[in-house]
Amino acid sequence: MTDTSWSQPHHDGSATYVPEPNPALGGMVDVFLRVPRTSDVTSAWVRVINDGEPELVQASVDRQDETDTWLRARLPVVSPVVSYHFLLDGGAQGYQWLNGAGLHSRDVADAADFRLSTYAPPPPWATSTMYQIFPDRFAKAVDRPAPT
């Protein structure tokens, strides 16, 4: 089995693709798309939802290296959660969509869209493993039913 992920366009929520993961409401945010130079993608648009309405934002070439072309799109942040996916020119049908679930040869629902949030990120301690201990479950002094 061969890994074809490097031969396909790619975007994810890492700092490489989204340098500002928690943009300010009312501002703009840059998102990047890596397109291998060997792919058949000729251009890209970002379909973003603004106030419940879809809008297309054209991506432009940001930089190129030996293997990839990096495209950048500036998205408006008009809602606390920004939902978006990519429309790519090229492919077997002449276009394809890229969302969090991967590449698609047909239009896709918004359920697997990439998302940015204007809300503050959780504190570092809240992102690690946590346990909740119920002392009354294993060391009862009085035999009584467990609380519900």
Rank of each mutant, 00 (worst) to 15 (best):
R37T: 04
I49D: 02
P80G: 07
Q132A: 05
L56R: 14
A126Q: 14
H10M: 08
G52Y: 11
Q93F: 08
L75F: 05
D113K: 02
P145K: 09
A111Q: 12
T4H: 11
L33S: 07
G94I: 13
V48F: 02
H85N: 08
A126V: 01
E20S: 05
D89P: 00
V46L: 05
S14R: 05
E66T: 11
T127I: 13
Q93K: 14
V35M: 03
I49Q: 08
V108P: 01
D143Q: 14
P123C: 00
M28H: 06
A139V: 00
T127M: 04
R72M: 14
V29G: 02
W97Q: 04
W70L: 15
R47K: 09
Q58N: 06
S43N: 06
D40E: 13
P135L: 02
P76C: 12
T118V: 12
A141R: 14
L98E: 06
Y17V: 00
L25C: 02
N22P: 00
V142L: 12
E55K: 13
D107N: 06
P36D: 15
V142P: 04
T129L: 01
I133L: 04
F134I: 08
P36F: 15
V41C: 06
P19S: 05
P76W: 13
F32C: 10
W125I: 11
R144W: 05
Q64E: 15
R137D: 10
R115A: 10
